[in-house]
Amino acid sequence: ASVAVIAAGTQGNIFATSALRSMRFLQILRMVRMDRRGGTWKLLGSVVYAHSKELITAWYIGFLVLIFASFLVYLAEKDANSDFSSYADSLWWGTITLTTIGYGDKTPHTWLGRVLAAGFALLGISFFALPAGILGSGFALKVQEQHRQKHFEKRRMPAANLIQAAWRLYSTDMSRAYLTATWYYYDSILPSFRELALLFEHVQRARNGGLRPLEVRRAPVPDGAPSRYPPVATCHRPGSTSFCPGESSRMGIKDRIRMGSSQRRTGPSKQHLAPPTMPTSPSSEQVGEATSPTKVQKSWSFNDRTRFRASLRLKPRTSAEDAPSEEVAEEKSYQCELTVDDIMPAVKTVIRSIRILKFLVAKRKFKETLRPYDVKDVIEQYSAGHLDMLGRIKSLQTRVDQIVGRGPGDRKAREKGDKGPSDAEVVDEISMMGRVVKVEKQVQSIEHKLDLLLGFYSRCLRSGTSASLGAVQVPLFDPDITSDYHSPVDHEDISVSAQTLSISRSVSTNMD
């Protein structure tokens, strides 16, 4: 405001104040949320940038038409019409005319000016109207692209899951042992070998009828009888010197917790746990005396209480009078009846079946994303299906024409109403129809010849004498029936064969 007042002088105070007050009108834009329509302006900018070359070309040609039209109309009207006294007036008329506004304040009066105005109007309006069409088509394409992008975003994750499931299904095939990355992934998420051994031990116990592997080994086996189970490696608790092959000598807290839970599941009659010990102070733990958990001091820290809870689970003690015997301790020893080589084939089979199920689920979810969402998608899918159906029908028609023997030239002739090819031409065609016709002709010829021969033979049998045999009239074959199959017997006289037959029969009768 200060700059405006200084620039306008003393009389500019009122002007500056009114100008600043008129800017209050811009507050109405906040009512229509114009300040939060950044996406709309961004869309407009992207459309203009995408079609910038077309817009520049249309505007450039339109500007050239405007300059030439205004100049030529000015030359034609400057002497006869006072409205075109300057080139600026003519340029104003050209702008209003070519933009199809047409105020009518300035019009050419001479015939030359009117002809020039009409010609440049028809030429220039087309170029001035091009930017509107370019922007409209650009907006339509952009909206369609955003629509497809939205659908693509919805299909991206199911497609990625389907590709991942397909690759993992491919890589978990037993015949592709060189693909090891997927197996490394499952090695990292699978439970430890100790848990798998416990699982298979329970399965084997159920197969043995509820007997433990130790009891199965204690059962008497006759001499020479084959053992029911192959000899396997035996594993004891981590306190002993022997372990399962492939295990580490260090046992983690999870393994100890699972070991304690498995020992508690063996039965309360074979294992008696004394009350857990509780320390009397955060600094020292008295293991010899058993106290109640309700006497825990409230001033303990979080670490002390955590250690106390761990001691409740991981440090059970047995009383002296209830101490288990050596046999019970041997039964409680952890027996590992299986090795990694025995378990891994079954584990890989389970993983393979899981990968198949996940692949089928991913495939079903991806197919669900291909379903249409709204009416536009339904129409688009219907149009695509219609085009596909037309293509299939056209391909089927082409194959039928190839089989029947109607080529493209014959199809055009039928469409024009011309006469089709004759039967002889159809026979000569190298097509399925021509071959079928040729075979039918040959079969008819053979059938006719057989009928003639059978009739001749029956007449010979009825006559009974050589004289009557020679008097029999043998009809000749019709050459038209034989089609294109020409037998060497067709052109010979059958009477010669009949005479030869009669001579042979007379000779045979004389010999008798």
Rank of each mutant, 00 (worst) to 15 (best):
Q473L: 15
W167S: 12
I163F: 08
D388A: 13
W167G: 12
K412T: 12
S383T: 15
W167C: 12
A181V: 11
R406W: 12
V400E: 13
K332E: 15
R168C: 11
G391D: 09
V296G: 15
V507G: 11
L450R: 13
K412N: 10
D173V: 03
H386D: 15
R392Q: 11
W167L: 11
K367M: 11
D374H: 08
E285D: 08
S333C: 06
Q473R: 07
L370Q: 08
L453P: 13
L450P: 14
S171F: 09
T369I: 09
A166D: 02
L390P: 15
R411S: 05
K376E: 12
I163N: 08
L454W: 12
D374A: 12
G405D: 06
I393T: 14
Q381H: 14
L357P: 13
K449N: 12
K394T: 01
D490E: 05
L396Q: 12
Q381L: 07
A165P: 03
D377A: 10
Y373D: 11
I393L: 08
I446T: 01
R207L: 13
P372T: 05
R406L: 07
I503F: 14
M259R: 10
T280A: 06
I354L: 01
P268T: 13
E330V: 11
D377Y: 00
K358T: 15
L370P: 09
L179P: 14
R462S: 12
S468G: 00
K449R: 10
D377N: 15
P475L: 13
P372Q: 05
S319F: 15
Y186F: 10
G405V: 14
K394R: 12
I257F: 15
D374E: 05
R392W: 05
D388E: 11
R371P: 15
T369P: 14
E326Q: 02
P372S: 14
D374G: 11
L370V: 08
G407E: 13
G409E: 13
P345H: 14
Q397R: 12
K367Q: 15
S395G: 10
D484V: 00
Q286R: 10
L360P: 11
E368G: 01
L390M: 14
F366Y: 03
K416N: 13
L396R: 13
F308I: 08
Q164P: 08
R505L: 11
Q397E: 13
S301T: 11
R392G: 13
K394Q: 03
R364M: 13
Y373C: 11
S431R: 13
I403N: 06
I163V: 06
M389L: 12
T172N: 12
K416E: 11
S171Y: 05
R399P: 12
L179Q: 01
R313S: 12
T294P: 12
M389V: 15
L198R: 10
A362P: 14
F366S: 15
D173G: 12
R392P: 03
K367E: 05
I393F: 03
R168S: 06
E321V: 15
W300S: 12
Q473P: 10
K394M: 00
R364W: 12
P372A: 13
G239R: 03
R168G: 06
G405A: 11
D418N: 15
S171A: 14
A166P: 13
S242Y: 13
G405S: 08
M432T: 13
R352P: 02
D388V: 14
I393N: 05
K449T: 12
L450M: 06
P316H: 12
I393S: 09
I393M: 00
Y185S: 13
R392L: 12
Q381E: 11
E380D: 14
R168L: 12
Y184H: 02
P372L: 02
D374V: 02
T172I: 13
E321D: 14
P372R: 09
D377H: 12
Q402P: 05
D374Y: 01
I503L: 08
H202R: 10
K376T: 11
G420R: 13
K394E: 00
D173Y: 00
K367N: 03
T369S: 11
K449E: 05
Q397K: 15
S463P: 04
D322G: 12
I403S: 14
F366C: 15
L370R: 10
V507L: 14
T369R: 12
M278K: 14
M389R: 15
Q263L: 15
R265L: 02
M389I: 09
R414G: 09
R352H: 14
V287A: 14
I354V: 13
Y170D: 01
L396P: 15
I446F: 02
R411W: 08
D374N: 04
R399G: 13
S192C: 15
P316A: 08
I163T: 06
T182I: 11
Q297L: 15
D173A: 15
L169P: 04
Q397P: 12
V216M: 11
K394N: 13
D377V: 11
K412E: 03
I163S: 10
H486N: 10
E368A: 12
L390V: 08
Y373S: 15
W167R: 05
L357R: 14
F302C: 06
R168P: 07
S171P: 07
E368D: 04
G405C: 10
F359S: 12
L360Q: 00
V350D: 15
K412M: 13
I379M: 13
